[in-house]
Design a protein around this nucleic acid. Structure first.
Lengths: 223, 223
DNA sequence: CTTGCATTCTATCGGTTATTAGAATGTTGT
DNA sequence: ACAACATTCTAATAACCGATAGAATGCAAG
């Protein structure tokens, strides 16, 4: 029967997307690309893999049409093929968190200990940030902040957070975020801030999770 | 560094889900299971694969915690691990349709030719169905209809559609649906109905796409 | 033309996968 | 006890994959 052959073809196409999402390193690359466009070099170093291996993985992602490449001077910059790809990544991760006990255990080991983190609902956080009752800090590298960040958040990259500490009012509540639930930078920031006497906590949201809730982002124009 | 090892572990877990979705046959099984619980035998025959191979694929799906097994008499019935899994499948397929040209071409070959199909928006269809202005028919096997179907739809399995033709008012507009965008049954039904002089068209939605829009289903109690 | 970034090609290693098949096992209903 | 369903084990083939490495190529900036 011919309809069978056609059907196989259809599922085969979707499997290209699934195949792109079937490797841990590729998922890590997707997660990184959700923070904005990045060069191969930046991706390879962030995922701590060889640049040739990064190229190979990016090729698979490109074959599944999840990412696109753009030439920028002597670099090649990769970006997600669309906002729906970031949504797919969040969807995949959410389903995994929902059904894979091992993942919940691993997440619990990271984020429950040693500090206790209070959960903030997104809307009330947005309100409090707008009113200046809390300071929301984005501890990712500044280039990711500029590509898109939570409203009212200020950039305070973890790498140089010590330098910016004087800018932080000591009496305000601090809320840190970074790349998402799998990112440890905001935990490190909270640990550091508390040691200095700040009232600090983190949210697990990154920008991808934020937009999936239908909430807006801010984009910084070039300085 | 230890954080790197932990991070790899996290992405590895999500990759289990991606791996489950990286094979055409497994996606076909997911699509079938979106229509309701099914036995291994039913799945194997519907996907036209060996029963042992179906077992193997289901094992991978179970390892990714996308499906669960339940003993029912001398059969073993598989079902999706949750509604979010059906959502993930639709999400995967939607992203693929959005970015893979080959898939859009293949879909166009099936559904644009030879009959022209008018698109109905879901809400207006629901209204017209409620008011009896159109007859919505579910051409899937009756067991899938009973597991959940569009509101106001009547079961009219493609295999026995000829027998039920006398029940159809000749002056009403008929709208057929089946398992979703990759399913050919509704096309076949439309072709058949038009040959008999009915005004018939199809929608590409299946129940999974319907619920993803936040719309309700009906479930038939056992007869 | 030289330098630096990125890709490609080559090859290799070890490991996994899909598929088919035959035989055995376990479970359940009759 | 027997028949039916499903899974497991074994085995075999063929194909593919992740990772790594060396060498070559393409491309753009200076």
């Amino acid at each position: 029967m011919e309809s069978r052959k056609i059907k196989d073809l259809l599922y085969e196409q979707v499997a290209r997307v699934g195949k792109a999402a079937s490797s841990p390193k590729r998922l890590e690359l997707l997660d990184l690309l959700s923070q904005g466009e990045k060069t191969v070099e930046a991706l390879a170093s962030a995922a701590s893999i060889d640049i040739k291996l990064a190229s190979a993985h990016l090729k698979v992602l490109k074959e599944g049409r999840l990412v696109e490449a753009r030439r920028d001077g002597r670099f090649i910059a990769y970006r997600l093929a669309g906002a729906d790809v970031a949504g797919l990544w969040v969807n995949l991760r959410t389903v995994a968190e929902e059904h894979l006990v091992e993942l919940r255990v691993a997440l619990g080991q990271i984020f429950a200990a040693p500090e206790r983190l209070t959960a903030e609902t997104r809307i009330s956080l947005l309100d409090k940030a707008r009113q200046g009752k809390v300071i929301v800090i984005d501890v990712r590298p500044e280039i990711e902040y500029r590509a898109g960040h939570l409203p009212f958040a200020r950039s305070m990259p973890l790498a140089e957070i010590e330098r910016h500490l004087p800018d932080l009012p000591a009496d305000k509540e601090i809320v840190a975020y970074c790349r998402g639930p799998f990112c440890l930078m905001s935990d490190e920031a909270v640990r550091l801030l508390r040691k200095r006497g700040y009232r600090a906590s983190k949210i697990s949201d990154g920008v991808a999770e934020w937009v999936m809730q239908g909430l807006p982002l801010d984009v910084s124009p070039l300085t």
